[in-house]
Simulated scan of single mutants.
Amino acid sequence: MKTLFKLLLLFGLVAYLFFAFTKFSHHSDTSPCEHLNLTIADSAQAGFITYEEAERILRQNGVYPIGKRMDQINNLKIEKALKKNAFIDSVACYKSPNGTVNILIVQRLPLMRILADNGDTYYLDQKGNQMNPKGYHADIAVATGSISRKFARRELVKLGRFLKEDDFWDKQIEQIHVLPNGHLKLIPRVGAHTIYLGTTDSLSLKFRNLYTFYKKVLPQVGWNKYEEISVENVSQIVGTKIED
Rank of each mutant, 00 (worst) to 15 (best):
L4Q: 07
L7H: 06
L9W: 08
F18I: 10
F21K: 08
F24D: 09
S28L: 14
D29C: 05
T30Q: 11
E34M: 10
L36Y: 12
L36D: 13
T39H: 12
I40P: 00
A41F: 02
D42L: 08
A44P: 00
Q45M: 07
A46T: 00
I49Q: 09
I49H: 04
I49W: 06
A54S: 12
A54T: 13
A54G: 07
L58Y: 03
G62C: 04
I66H: 00
G67M: 05
G67I: 06
G67A: 09
K68A: 12
K68H: 07
R69L: 13
D71P: 01
D71Y: 02
I73Q: 05
E79T: 14
E79G: 10
L82T: 09
L82V: 09
K83N: 14
A86N: 07
V91I: 12
A92M: 11
A92L: 08
C93W: 08
C93K: 07
S96D: 12
S96W: 08
P97M: 12
N102F: 15
L104S: 13
L109A: 10
L115A: 13
A116W: 04
D117A: 14
D117I: 00
D120M: 03
T121C: 10
T121H: 10
Y122S: 07
Y123M: 05
Q126M: 10
N129L: 09
Q130L: 11
Q130I: 12
Q130A: 13
N132R: 13
P133T: 07
K134V: 11
Y136P: 03
H137C: 10
H137I: 13
A138M: 12
I140V: 15
T144V: 14
I147D: 06
I147S: 07
S148Q: 11
R149I: 13
R149W: 05
K150Y: 07
F151P: 02
F151C: 02
A152V: 06
A152R: 01
R154W: 10
L156R: 01
L159E: 02
R161P: 00
R161F: 03
L163K: 11
L163D: 05
E165N: 14
E165I: 04
E165A: 15
W169F: 15
D170R: 06
K171W: 13
H177M: 14
P180A: 09
N181K: 09
N181S: 15
L184C: 03
L184D: 03
L184E: 04
K185C: 04
L186I: 01
L186Q: 02
L186W: 03
I187P: 00
R189N: 11
R189S: 09
H193R: 09
T194N: 13
G198T: 02
T199E: 06
D201F: 00
D201T: 01
S204E: 15
S204I: 08
L205D: 05
N209C: 05
N209R: 09
N209S: 08
L210C: 11
Y211S: 00
T212C: 14
K216T: 12
K216C: 01
L218T: 15
G222M: 12
G222T: 05
W223S: 13
N224K: 06
Y226H: 01
E227R: 14
I229Y: 00
S230T: 02
E232M: 05
E232K: 03
V234L: 03
V234N: 04
S235C: 01
Q236K: 13
V238G: 00
G239Q: 00
T240E: 15
